[in-house]
Structures are given as C-alpha cells and as structure tokens.
Amino acid sequence: MEELNMRMILFYVFSFIMVASALGVVLHRNPVKSAMFLVSFFVGLAAMYALLGAEFLAVVQILVYVGAIMVLFLFVIMLISVREENFESPGSNLGRTAATVLLIGAFAVQFLVMARVFTAGPGINASRPYHGSLGQTGKIIEGNVELLSFKLFQGYLLPFELISIVLLVAAIGAVVLAKKNRRKLQ
C-alpha cells in the first residue's frame, strides 16, 4: 500500500504538470513559450511511461520528441519569426487565473476521491514486472526492449508496416503541397 500511494501521488503530480502545460501550449501568446510548454508536456509524458514500467519508451520519448521534434519546432518558429503581437490573447488575465484555480481544485477533489477508493479496494497493479513467453519457441522473455521488439515485429507486424506507408504518404503529401512551382515538376 505504501508503494502504491507513492505511485498515485507521482501520477497526480505528473498529470497535473501535463494538463497545465497542455493548456499553456494553447493559451500562451508567445509561440516560443508555447513550444517550451510542449517540452514540459513531453517530459511529463515520459515520466508517465516510466511510472508504468515502460522505461524504454520513456527514454525514446525524451530522445525523439524533446530532442528531435521540438528542436525542429523551435527552429521553424524562430525562422518565420512570429511575434507575440500577431496573436490575440485567448482570454483575460482574470479568466486565466480562474481556469488555473479551477484546474487545481478539480485535481485536488479527484485526488481525494481516488485516494479513498484505492485505499478501500484493491489497487492498481502497475508495478507488475514485464514478462512473456514467445509462442512457438517457448522462450521466456524478460525485459523491456526485447519484449517490445517481439511485439513490434511479430504481434503488431501489420500496423507497424502500415505506419511506414503512412510516413511515406506524409512525406510525399508535404512535398506536393509545399512545392512552390508544381508545374515545373512535370
């Protein structure tokens, strides 16, 4: 129970950070700061993965999203130099304060309710270690990365391959839509 409560507290802390920074992304007037809020959202998400026992995903989340994609975002934002004045403020200061207070209140209420529920009944079982067996060979797999790779290349082979086509389509589509002089292509 002790460990469970610690997990729960961490879960609520990180989900609060995530929701608050998600709101920050949408509501902040300065695009660079919005992007920074997105970074903090991704870090929170990585912490969530770690809490669920998926350490590998947590690391990949940080590397790919925070490392690669956010840098690209910031690069583009700074390249096209959007100004703060270009955006209308989505709400008054009073409104934003009210939203923050409401958010904190909602989390507090939910936390208290959940705390009662979980201390009363059987709790979440997120701390269960990962293990599985590989159907035909009967080999027992322990550990995150190995299991993930088996899942990805055997169980979820079809969606995995389909995603590669989706990425191809996205790349072609982006070029077609963004190319300046499409006639010259022909």
């Binding site: 389909l162 995603i163 086509i165 989706v166 389509v169 996205a170 072609i172």
Partner: peptide, 14 residues
Amino acid sequence: LFVALELSSLPLFV
C-alpha cells in the same frame, strides 16, 4: 483499425 484509418485519411487531406 486506427493505423489503417490514418493511412486512408492522410492522402485525403492532401
């Protein structure tokens, strides 16, 4: 189902 839906809609956005 989800991935296939993405594959079918992404070309349509273009």
